[in-house]
Amino acid sequence: MTQLSSRYLPLTALATLAIALAGCQSIIPTDRGQGPDVVDIGQTEPSQPPPAEKPTTPPPVQRVSRTVAFDPAVYAQLPKTGSAVVTGRLTLNTSNGVVIGSQQGVSVAPVTPYSAEAVEQALAGKTVERADPRAQEYTHSTRTNANGYFILSNLPPGNFYVSGIVENPSTGEREIIIKEATLSNDRTTEVELTR
Rank of each mutant, 00 (worst) to 15 (best):
L78E: 04
Q48F: 09
Q43N: 07
E45Q: 11
A52C: 01
E45P: 00
P50V: 08
A76G: 05
P46C: 09
R66F: 11
E53A: 13
Q43L: 14
F70I: 02
P51A: 07
P51H: 10
V64W: 02
A73D: 15
P72Q: 15
P72K: 08
D71R: 01
K80L: 11
E53N: 11
P72R: 08
F70D: 06
P58Q: 05
P51G: 08
V61R: 08
R66A: 03
A76K: 08
F70M: 02
V68H: 03
P55F: 03
P55W: 02
T44W: 15
T44D: 13
S65A: 13
F70K: 03
T67W: 05
E53Q: 13
A52S: 06
P72S: 15
E45S: 13
P46L: 13
P49N: 02
T67A: 08
L78F: 01
P72G: 09
P55E: 09
Q48L: 13
T67Y: 07
Q62P: 02
P49H: 08
V68C: 01
P59Y: 05
V74L: 06
P50G: 11
T56W: 08
F70R: 00
F70N: 00
A73S: 11
T67P: 00
K54A: 13
A69D: 12
G42Y: 10
T81D: 07
T67R: 15
I41C: 10
V68P: 04
R66I: 10
T56I: 11
Q77P: 01
T81C: 07
Y75V: 04
T57C: 04
V68R: 00
P51K: 12
G42T: 06
T67V: 13
E53V: 07
P55Y: 05
T56L: 08
T81L: 10
T67K: 12
Y75A: 05
T67G: 11
Q48H: 11
P51D: 12
E45T: 13
P55N: 11
P51M: 04
Q43P: 03
Q62Y: 08
P49D: 12
T57A: 13
Y75P: 00
Q43I: 07
R66Q: 08
T81N: 08
K80W: 09
S47L: 12
T57E: 11
V74S: 09
A52Q: 06
A69S: 15
F70A: 06
V68A: 01
P58C: 00
A73I: 03
V64P: 00
E45N: 13
Q48P: 00
L78V: 10
E45M: 10
K80Q: 15
V64I: 05
S65E: 12
T56G: 07
R66G: 01
K80E: 12
K80P: 02
R66M: 04
A73T: 14
A73F: 04
V68T: 15
E45Y: 14
V61N: 01
G42R: 09
R66L: 07
L78I: 06
R63D: 09
P79H: 14
P79G: 11
K54T: 15
P58W: 00
Q43D: 09
F70S: 00
D71K: 08
A52N: 15
S47D: 10
V74W: 05
T44F: 12
P59V: 08
